[in-house]
């Protein structure tokens, strides 16, 4: 959970350093449009399907929290390889993508790459923001680690499917297919290693994919903007500052 909080603050800081002035005094409306994009763009169908899926996974789950992290080997589809999904699913793919295309955009003067970076950072920021908010409020215990109350939703699934959806939107479905395969591996690894229930994973997939596609449709409509971060006095939280 601490890693996720650090990652979210890092994302907001990165957006701050890339802030571009604009004469449009529409920041509240633009942020609001992005936050609502899973509901008022074609991404709403992902939200609908994902929500129904998550509900179906939840209703058949039995309320059992048992011994710590113990699945029989034969019941683990990834065997002992789940740790790979755990490590790369902490936003590593999102960060590598953003870093590479930022370098390409700045040093090779490629505006398409900068647009891709903007998409990735915005999608990942909103995804991680909602994921953190839900983890902090719902307090579902993890199946294999019942002392940890941050099971719902899966942050690894939401971040990795935000990554995969951005890749598909920006680069087509060949690269998107590969990215979705990687994201699926990460999502499966969470159930494989008893960190999450299946409904946690489907909820994470829904959040990541819906924000990525929602922001994509907003970008296509032409809503470029940046928002900036202002540190708070006590240093224990995150505040958002806006230029006027």
């Amino acid at each position: 959970m601490a890693v996720l909080k650090f990652f979210f603050i890092a994302l907001l800081t990165i957006q701050n350093t890339m802030a571009v002035e604009t004469e449009k005094e529409t920041y509240f409306r633009d942020v609001g449009e992005d936050l609502l994009s899973p509901f008022n763009t074609p991404a709403k169908w992902i939200v609908l399907g994902g929500t129904v899926t998550t509900a179906l996974m939840y209703v058949t789950r039995k309320d059992i929290t048992y011994r710590k992290s113990e699945s029989f080997r034969q019941a683990q589809p990834l065997g002992n390889l789940g740790f790979i999904g755990e490590y790369i699913g902490y936003g590593f793919l999102n960060a590598v993508y953003s870093g590479y295309f930022y370098w390409d955009g700045k040093y090779n003067n490629n505006p398409k790459s900068l647009k891709a970076v903007e998409h990735m950072i915005r999608a990942t920021t909103y995804t991680m923001g909602l994921t953190l908010a839900l983890k902090s409020t719902i307090h579902e215990r993890r199946p294999g680690y019942p002392d940890d109350p941050h099971s719902f939703p899966s942050g690894h699934s939401s971040a990795s499917f935000a990554f995969a959806s951005v890749v598909a939107a920006q680069h087509g479905w060949v690269w998107g297919g590969i990215a979705h395969a990687m994201a699926s591996f990460i999502a499966i690894s969470r159930v494989n290693d008893d960190f999450h229930y299946l409904h946690d994973v489907t909820a994470g997939i829904t959040i990541g994919a819906s924000f990525a596609w929602g922001v994509y449709y907003n970008l296509e409509k032409g809503n470029p903007y940046w928002f900036s971060l202002i540190p708070v006095k006590k240093g224990g939280g995150v505040a958002m500052g806006l230029d006027f």
Partner: peptide, 25 residues
């Protein structure tokens, strides 16, 4: 195909099978 599943629980007087997750390939 690859599916993840939730609990498959089967109960009869002779035996009980309780599970918490599964997968289909």
């Amino acid at each position: 195909i690859f599916y993840l599943t939730t609990d498959y629980n089967s109960v009869s007087p002779s035996y009980t099978r309780l599970t918490d997750k599964g997968f289909i390939i």
